[in-house]
Simulated scan of single mutants.
Amino acid sequence: MPDPSIRTIRDCRIAGAGGDWDAVRVPRSVGLDVLAILCSRSGAVLEDPLAAALSWFIPPSAAGDWDVPGTRILGEGAHLVIPPPRRTRGPGPHWRSCPGEDAWVTDPAALRAALEDAARPRGMEPTS
């Protein structure tokens, strides 16, 4: 997915959003809960320790009407530093969930639901 010709330090690459994917960035504290909620339904998840954030990849323009508090949509014109495919520890950007051949993208509806669940105050779970 990322352009292999643009390299940064430690074999990371700079990749632009808006082509093959957009990204949803959330604070690390929320992102860890979201990752636990999504489990195997999550695609690749990038952790950026400098920004204290986790980012999920979604289809381009899938967040057109996104209004989830605490999230930042990275679309056309935004860039991410992408580590090598199996880097799971820092320093620097690394994968919380490694990308696979076709597992970069997370379903935006599932991600949104997990974000809303993670943001819900404890003890405020929906009743049936």
Rank of each mutant, 00 (worst) to 15 (best):
D33Y: 00
I6P: 00
R28D: 11
V24P: 03
A51Y: 05
E116C: 13
S97Y: 03
L115Q: 06
V81C: 14
V26H: 00
A17L: 14
M1H: 00
D65R: 12
R28Q: 11
V24E: 01
P126Y: 09
A36M: 09
R122Y: 05
I14T: 09
R89N: 02
G90E: 10
L35Q: 06
G77K: 03
R89P: 00
G100R: 14
I82F: 11
S97C: 11
R72H: 12
V68C: 06
W66P: 08
A109I: 13
D20T: 10
W104N: 01
G16F: 12
I58E: 01
R28G: 06
A44M: 08
G75W: 04
V24H: 00
P2H: 07
G70E: 06
L35K: 01
G100A: 14
V81R: 15
L80H: 12
W56R: 04
S55N: 02
G92I: 05
R87V: 15
R41S: 13
A17T: 14
A114R: 06
R89H: 11
R86M: 08
I82Y: 09
A52W: 14
D102H: 15
P60E: 03
D48T: 07
V26L: 04
R25P: 04
S97T: 11
A23G: 08
D11P: 00
C39H: 10
L80V: 14
